[in-house]
Write a protein that binds this DNA or RNA. Structure first.
Length: 415
DNA sequence: TCTGGGGTCCTAGGACCC
DNA sequence: TCTGGGGTCCTAGGACCC
């Protein structure tokens, strides 16, 4: 009595590039790349030349001289990604969105209405194609892990259904790097003991994997190799952290460099946290140096914070501590701030008195009130007139924005 | 020749408590 | 006083994913 395969994984193909080809018919059938300095996404026609997301524009042109570069239409990505997920939601409420262009769904409860899972998957693909004009691949299987692999195998613009009776035959011939959680490092470690396929992984003793990869990863991979994946569809997942980072080129580790950048990052994060009433207790900063090595420092407070200036001050202290420990580093290339240990629901009024516990001995503690009031005022103006209408302006102006804000927002998770 | 930005989870050591 | 054990939290660093 096999359990039915009712998990779907749906994944829009070459999403950004497909949207651009949808918006501009002249681009269809041609190799294109979204982005300029860095390729954010490449059409399948460009991928045929070896162009991949992440390479530089120059490398892309070397691989494919006739490639067309286009600027991203980020609002459209959000709109069309949402619309595609909505199509899935017309079949079942059990939808777990993974990213802008990808989602799991469990259709076990709606087959009496819409037919077997394979038919539902097919209907989703047809609707996304006809209503939105976009290609989407779907994998159907008994577990999330296998459904995700199936959708990768189905690409581009395909459907793969894995019958529960033959799932191991399907799985075991595939290379290990198709598994969720196997990146370059794990792939290399597995190769050291001669494991290159998922079948070989399944045949490796558990103790061997745990010694090689650690207890958690070892156990997890062994289970996934036998398609033992207990994860269920999670429709609501609380975000656990919120952060922002900025690549700043190659700059000296001086206050004039890091101070304005940190204030800007703190402002972005703080406004997000405040808008969702989710201040956090732990502040982490990261500094990347010239050689791409990086160092992190974090501190956990007694009470959660979301005020921009307080966040910026804490971040600055942490960055100074990092720089003090790396006196030989003459170049910094990236600054990042992240806030974690987020409160679930927080009355921001409480942040005022509690946040001040942070620095009780400071005579200027009452400045906390001014900071708090200023943040609220700025938030309100931004609500009405947009994010750039006001802010720590002297800061914002001087910043080089290597990536449009719309793109950053695309990657932000709902708090 | 060095890709940017937003996330999640795991590990290992130390502090602290019972 | 010595020995041992268990649990939780914090911090720094990594691997991985989209």
């Amino acid at each position: 009595m096999a359990i039915a395969a009712t998990i779907l994984h749906a994944d829009l193909d070459a999403f950004y590039a497909s949207v651009e080809q949808l918006l501009a018919p002249s681009l269809r059938g041609k190799p294109i790349a979204v982005g300029g300095g860095v390729v954010l996404a490449a059409s399948y026609e460009a991928r045929a030349f070896g162009v991949r997301g992440g390479i530089t524009g120059r490398q892309a042109r070397e691989l494919c001289p006739q490639i067309t570069f286009v600027d991203g239409h980020f609002r459209d990505y959000q709109r069309l990604g949402d619309a595609a997920i909505d199509v899935i939601g017309d079949f079942t409420p059990l939808v777990e969105r993974i990213s802008i262009d990808e989602a799991f769904a469990d259709v076990a409860g709606c087959t009496h209405l819409f037919g077997p899972p394979a038919e539902i998957a097919s209907a989703i693909r047809q609707r996304v194609r006809s209503e939105l004009g976009l290609p989407i691949s779907v994998g159907v299987a008994r577990t999330k892990h296998l459904a995700k692999i199936a959708s990768q195998v189905a690409k581009p613009d395909g459907l793969t259904v894995v019958d529960p009776d033959t799932e191991l035959e399907f799985l075991h011939d595939l290379p290990v790097e198709l598994m969720w959680g196997v990146g370059p490092v794990t792939k290399a470690r597995l190769a050291e003991i001669g494991v290159e396929t998922i079948g070989q992984l399944a045949g490796t003793p558990g103790w061997s994997l745990e010694r090689l990869l650690g207890p958690a990863a070892g156990e997890k991979l062994a289970a996934l190799a036998w398609n033992r994946d207990p994860r269920e569809i999670r429709t609501h997942r609380r975000t656990r952290s919120a952060g922002a980072q900025s690549a700043i080129g190659r700059k000296p580790p001086e206050e004039q460099v890091f101070r304005p950048t940190l204030l800007h990052l703190a402002d972005r994060i703080g406004s997000r946290l405040r808008s969702k009433s989710r201040p956090g207790r732990t502040v982490t900063v990261r500094v990347r140096f010239a050689n791409l090595n990086s160092a992190t420092r974090s501190v956990t407070l007694d009470a959660p914070i979301s005020a921009t200036v307080i966040l910026a001050e804490i971040a600055e202290k942490l960055v100074r501590a990092i720089l003090a420990e790396h006196p030989d580093e003459k170049i910094i290339s990236l600054l990042a701030i992240s806030v974690s240990h987020l409160e679930e629901h927080w009355d921001l009024e409480l942040e005022l008195p509690l946040g001040l516990q942070d620095e009780p001995r400071r005579p200027g503690s009452r400045m906390g009130l001014a900071r708090w009031t200023a943040d609220r005022a700025i938030d309100k103006i931004r609500d009405r007139f947009g994010w750039d209408a006001i802010g720590y302006g002297s800061v914002v102006l001087g910043l080089s924005r290597s990536v449009p804000d719309e793109f950053r927002e695309l990657a932000e998770k709902e708090l």
